[in-house]
Simulated scan of single mutants.
Amino acid sequence: MKLHHLSGFIALLSSVGLSAAPLNVATYNIHHGAGEDEVLDLQRITNVLNKLDVDLVGLQEVDIANGRTGFVSQGKYIAQQLQNAQNTPWKTLNAAAIEFENGEYGNAIIYKSDVLTLNDYKVVRLPDPDGDGQRSAGVATFTDKDGITFQFVASHLTHKNKTENGSTIQLTSLKMVEDNLDSKLPTIFVADFNASIRKEDNHNLDTMAYLIKNNWRIDSPLEGASIPDEPWIIDYVVSKNHDKLKVNSAQIVLDDLTKVASDHFPVKVNYLLEK
């Protein structure tokens, strides 16, 4: 191949995505480490995430140093185990929702700190539906090694959506999250939404309809099930201001380990972040 043809070929390859940075994201409701077999085993959760080869994870139903699970800060424990397994630094951001058994309970974000630099983090306190406990959202701003800055939100919405006066707690929660975002930054939002986009599921359909109406894109699968007990998908990865967030692949991860490790399946999206 002549030199000028070679240089043109390299330029063409760059233009179709070699300059894009990969980012593997997951959402996982870990049920405080208690599996479908009712065995509490955080190592299984760690093994699931290690096999997924992810960079950034939103965890739901996380015990944060409370009595139920021996005062272990579960997000921190999982991050440390991943660090040991991969020889890669991991960090934890807790998003406690409630006080529980002399500790806390809620959500967490874990991430590879050699891939992502944390710029800002805050915890948004969401409404407290009677009988279901207050909810929370962790809102982080990261910059990757190529200088791409984006927001990442991890949350778990209540299943007690409708109140006696007819208000919709999930929609109120989503609006509160949006009020705490930079409206111009690319944003990835992962959660157990306790809602489905599919009409056949008939499960809090107005929540996902709201997201789509307000320019959120559903990046994770729309077919299958994310929980073993119902044929529903209620765990999603969605994005906004997503021109630079290219979805390369997405999957609900079903295998022998994920079928027992928790009462939800992890959902993974591989992005290409473009400058």
Rank of each mutant, 00 (worst) to 15 (best):
M208E: 05
K213M: 02
S183R: 03
N214K: 10
V153H: 02
Q170W: 04
I10C: 00
H156E: 08
E101I: 01
G147D: 10
L93R: 06
Q151V: 01
E61F: 09
E230V: 11
T187N: 08
K259Y: 00
K162H: 14
H159G: 02
Y236R: 01
K76R: 13
D130F: 13
D55Q: 11
I227W: 11
R217F: 07
Y28I: 02
A26R: 03
K112Q: 13
G58C: 06
V177H: 07
N84Y: 10
N248K: 11
G17W: 02
V260Y: 10
I234D: 04
V269F: 08
D146S: 15
S220G: 11
K76P: 00
V267M: 08
S196Q: 09
L13C: 12
S167L: 10
T143P: 13
I78D: 09
T168F: 11
L42R: 14
N107R: 06
G70K: 03
I98V: 13
D55R: 11
V253D: 00
D53M: 09
D53S: 09
L40S: 11
V54D: 05
G103Q: 08
G138E: 06
T88G: 04
N66F: 00
I234L: 10
Q170R: 10
D263V: 04
M208C: 07
V190S: 12
V115F: 06
F189Y: 13
Y77P: 12
H242N: 13
L222I: 13
D235G: 08
T149A: 07
L126W: 06
N248L: 09
V62H: 07
G35F: 12
R217H: 15
S183Q: 12
L12E: 03
V72D: 08
N214S: 09
S7I: 14
D182N: 15
S262L: 05
Q170N: 11
G33S: 11
R198Y: 07
G131A: 10
L126A: 05
A79E: 07
V57R: 06
T92H: 09
R68S: 11
T172M: 15
K259I: 03
E178G: 02
I234M: 09
K162S: 13
D182W: 04
Q81K: 13
H264M: 08
H242M: 00
L18Q: 00
S15M: 04
L40K: 12
Q151T: 01
A195Y: 05
V253S: 03
L171I: 15
V267D: 05
D128L: 03
I45D: 04
L222S: 14
L93F: 03
T168P: 02
T258V: 07
Q134H: 06
F152A: 07
Q83M: 14
P89A: 12
N248G: 00
E61W: 05
G8M: 01
Y111L: 03
L118R: 02
D179P: 03
A108C: 12
